[in-house]
């Protein structure tokens, strides 16, 4: 049965009761995207289905803390829109300022990727060894951005991630976080680019010696 089979419509009852095998469930969900009256009927019947489960039972007391600390661990790297947005906003502002933003702004969004920087005509790349593995840096004057490719780094350990800083006059400013499977872009600045290992939630200032420190002039 597929989503266009007239018979797929008859799966509405079993779908609501979670009585479908995965393949039929997928077919019905595809059907739902095209069938407004089915969506309406599903929405109308859902509260009645949920009422069949309405037997509240408090979970053990310790579970709350366990769940919240698990949530906190997964917060920063995977879902820190604030930090990423800040980088994107700085990037957009820089692009406007230097007038070289045509490449990025024509993409329809203002999020530049590391691949964009590595693909820039004037990119200069540096493979930098660290005790956690190699980091590849790419700097484009044209884009005024630095790409940090951390995909050759090793796992920093449970609850840890890599944080990128620009350090100048003895003060380090956080510009991005990433995990060992990721790469990030940060705006070009004065001072020294540093990478440290930090708890996933991010730190206000570096809490470990830099794995890598690269003066802007050498990039």
């Amino acid at each position: 049965m597929n989503a266009h089979d007239p018979d797929v419509h008859s799966l509405l009852g079993p779908y609501l009761l979670h009585a479908l095998e995965p393949a039929e469930r997928a077919a019905f969900e595809e059907h739902l995207t095209a069938c407004a009256s089915c969506r309406e009927e599903v929405a109308e019947l859902r509260p009645a289905v949920a009422a069949l489960s309405d037997r509240p039972s408090p979970p053990p007391a310790g579970l709350r803390e366990q769940i919240i600390s698990r949530a906190a661990e997964t917060r920063s790297v995977r879902r820190s829109p604030r930090r990423r947005l800040r980088v994107a906003a700085v990037a957009a502002a820089v692009l406007l300022a230097v007038g070289g933003g045509i490449v990025a702004t024509q993409r329809g969004d203002d999020r530049m990727t590391a691949a964009d920087v590595f693909a820039a005509a004037d990119v200069r790349t540096h493979d930098m060894p660290t005790k956690m593995g190699a980091v590849r840096l790419g700097m484009s004057h044209e884009l005024h951005m630095v790409a940090v490719d951390g995909r050759a780094l090793t796992d920093p350990g449970a609850g840890m991630a890599y944080e990128v800083w620009w350090s100048a006059n003895g003060r380090a400013t956080s510009v991005a976080m990433f995990q060992e499977t990721e790469s990030v872009v940060v705006p070009m600045r004065e001072g020294e680019l540093q990478i440290t290992m930090e708890p996933m939630a991010g730190s206000d200032a570096p809490t470990s010696p830099p794995l890598l420190a690269m003066p802007a002039a050498s990039l």
């Binding site: 008859s10 799966l11 509405l12 009852g13 079993p14 609501l16 009761l17 009585a19 109308e44 019947l45 509260p47 009645a48 289905v49 009422a51 069949l52």
Partner: peptide, 15 residues
């Protein structure tokens, strides 16, 4: 399939 669907509809009306 039909009894599931009309059963749920009756349940909804009753609730």
């Amino acid at each position: 399939k039909t009894r599931m669907r009309d059963g749920l509809a009756r349940l909804r009306d009753c609730l």
